[in-house]
Design a protein around this nucleic acid. Sequence first.
DNA 1: CGTAGCTTTGACGAGGGTCAAAATAAGTGG
DNA 2: CCACTTATTTTGACCCTCGTCAAAGCTACG
Lengths: 246, 246
Amino acid sequence: MANPLTRKLEHFARLSDDDRHALDTMAGQHVRERRARADLIREGDKPEHVKLILTGWACRYKVMEDGRRQILSFFVPGDLCDLNVYILREMDHSIGAITPVSYAQISREAFEEATDGRTRMMQALLWDALVSSAIQREWIANIGQRSAVGRIAHLLLELFYRLEAVGLTKGDACEMPITQAEFADALGMTAVHVNRMIQELRAAGLIELAGKRLSILDRDALTRTAHFNAQYLHLQREGRHFDANN
Amino acid sequence: MANPLTRKLEHFARLSDDDRHALDTMAGQHVRERRARADLIREGDKPEHVKLILTGWACRYKVMEDGRRQILSFFVPGDLCDLNVYILREMDHSIGAITPVSYAQISREAFEEATDGRTRMMQALLWDALVSSAIQREWIANIGQRSAVGRIAHLLLELFYRLEAVGLTKGDACEMPITQAEFADALGMTAVHVNRMIQELRAAGLIELAGKRLSILDRDALTRTAHFNAQYLHLQREGRHFDANN
DNA sequence: CGTAGCTTTGACGAGGGTCAAAATAAGTGG
DNA sequence: CCACTTATTTTGACCCTCGTCAAAGCTACG
């Protein structure tokens, strides 16, 4: 199967074989493994590489002074941490593995070499970066405005669509290795309340969630309770003028 | 006075006269005005330009299905909306003026012309984009984890530091044209509660806030109640190798 | 100086937090 | 594959922070 980044970028532009090859090379070099709960990089470290998640799930997070933790985003296969991170002097947050993870470390040189002269691929990467930013904004709206059930429903749908974009769903089901405590840290609520709200979603027949697996039983109803609008994921191909003609 | 974007970018790299000139050209073309409460661009519109705020305050926001509004970020002079927005097919949020605003509209061509061959300036712009992203993440942590007073204190400090970076503070005071209802929309709380919390900050002698003006009376105490750590703004110059030697 | 917009107050209610313990599930070493 | 340990999920009782509704003062500005 194609590497998940390539697969995702094809939602924006039809890539050439040369583009695909460059992406595969990028994804195949300096592959590291990390086991569940280990950090890929810590707040304060100097970021030397862009990281590309190949398999497994990870998250960005920040630990507050009082020990509480905020998860800032989830990474699934095909996700890059910020392009050009290495411009910054130090990380202002950490990235940790949720499940066992394998990822590629892309140095500045490797990145520049891969994108040099490949305008379409670079544009696809910029599109991906803009989408990541849009996701962050949606999280602000999610935490700021939605009710507890709505927040959970919204996050589940987001993750489902993102997994679908890289081919990691089967019908209405997908992996969902996130614990309720992690949902709580991501959504700004307590694990206890997350639990109650998930039970509500189950009781209403909207989802099945157990054993690190999610099934969406009633997508319309779930979409309605989440007030979910997939537009912010910008997943429809954006225009033919970005297609490769190879 | 230098244009505010140039002034901000100097926190990252010492720019050459040529860089500064290119930035001034960019900031001087296609300048538009908008009065308070008018939109610069709306959700659903095709983004054709990067916008650079020259004077006045604006914000990104999103209106939810139930009519509630989430403000996603504030723009002060020197702030750019996302680099490369024109890659996206349509806006997933709106940008609205808070005060009367003047801003430059930078087309793709103008942007590419300005950055072409100016590596250092491009890096400074990428740094700015990474910082914007860091600010968004901090908002997630702010809304998700902090108490109501903490949230307000944190936002006030962030805005103060950002204004300081573009030379818009005088000692411990600065403009603060944001209404309590807008604070509420930005922080995921109600205007009534914002009001009560501001009164608490005033009563504790930490701030003075009235007539669209903020004075920080006790910065240490405010920093403590906000659990504020300016690291995420990445304002210290990041390294000499980025300096121009002109 | 009149009207719209913003801030402030008060009373009351509810969504979600806290604390603590039980019930399950998932690992781990022997 | 079992026995034991460690995570994770669930439940229950209680209460606090923040939201709601509504009205009254202020401010600003045409």
